[in-house]
Simulated assay, not measured.
Amino acid sequence: MKRFYLIGFLVLMAFDTLAQLSFKMAGNAALPLELSPAWLWRVFSDPWIYGALAGYIGAFFTWMHLLRRAPIGPAFAASHLEIISALVVSHYLFQENVGAPQIAGCLFILAGIACLAMSEAQDHRKAEHA
């Protein structure tokens, strides 16, 4: 079961990261913003918009599959790992600044996931002994 969670959340993180980065690339390609047929053509002819769509659809179906088996608390927290992966990949692809506030935020996300996972494990052990 642990392998299921590990693989599942890695797949979810990959789809979410693909969606976030593709959406950023599509947004960059859509500039300058204007309401015109040429702008719409530019947006929908850019392949990154379809990468974002594929990422969101993949993340949705992966999330639905995970929720069948995963406890909701840790699952919800772990679903936010894409914030960390998108930050790391954006740093390398887009040279975005990663400073102390971003690192602190990542650490809080990881600490929250760890706390919820430990709490869930504790509840599971109590249920087994009851």
Rank of each mutant, 00 (worst) to 15 (best):
A86W: 04
L33A: 14
E34V: 12
V43E: 11
K24W: 03
A59G: 09
K126D: 15
W48R: 10
W41I: 14
A127D: 13
L67E: 08
W48V: 12
L110A: 10
A75M: 00
A104G: 09
A19F: 03
V43D: 09
L12D: 00
P74V: 02
T17W: 00
M1T: 12
L40P: 13
G112K: 00
A52V: 08
V89R: 01
L35S: 15
L35V: 13
M1F: 10
L81V: 02
L35M: 15
L53H: 08
H80D: 01
F44C: 06
S36E: 13
E34H: 12
P74S: 04
L6A: 04
R42N: 08
G99N: 12
H91P: 08
F23Q: 14
R125T: 14
S45N: 11
I7R: 01
G55K: 02
Y92F: 14
S79H: 03
C115F: 02
M118E: 05
Q102N: 12
G27M: 11
C106M: 12
M1E: 10
L40F: 13
L66R: 02
F44Q: 08
W41S: 14
M25H: 09
A29G: 06
I113C: 04
G51W: 06
Q95A: 15
A114P: 04
A38G: 10
V98S: 08
D16F: 02
Q95G: 11
Q122D: 15
D123S: 15
M1N: 13
L66K: 03
R125E: 15
A30S: 09
E82F: 07
I109M: 05
R125C: 13
A111E: 05
W41K: 14
C115L: 07
N97H: 14
Q95I: 11
Q20R: 10
L31T: 05
S90D: 04
W39E: 09
S79F: 00
A26K: 06
L35N: 13
L53Q: 09
Y5I: 09
R125N: 14
F15A: 02
S79A: 07
T62A: 06
L87A: 11
L21Y: 02
F61I: 06
A19I: 02
L110M: 09
P71I: 02
A78R: 00
Q102G: 15
A59D: 04
G27Q: 08
P74G: 02
F108G: 10
S22T: 10
P101M: 07
A78H: 00
L12V: 01
A117P: 06
A78Y: 00
F4A: 05
A78G: 00
F61H: 08
W48P: 11
H91T: 09
A29R: 06
I57W: 07
S36I: 11
L18Q: 05
A114D: 05
A121Y: 05
A19M: 05
I113G: 03
V89N: 00
A127Q: 14
G73E: 01
N97C: 10
Q20E: 11
S119E: 09
L110E: 07
L116E: 01
L33W: 12
E82S: 12
D123N: 13
L12R: 00
I84Y: 00
H80F: 01
S90P: 06
Q122H: 13
N97D: 13
Y56H: 12
L66T: 04
P74Q: 02
L93Y: 03
M25R: 14
E34I: 10
F44K: 09
E34G: 11
Y56A: 10
L107K: 06
A54F: 06
D16S: 11
P37H: 13
L6V: 03
A114W: 07
S36Q: 11
W41N: 14
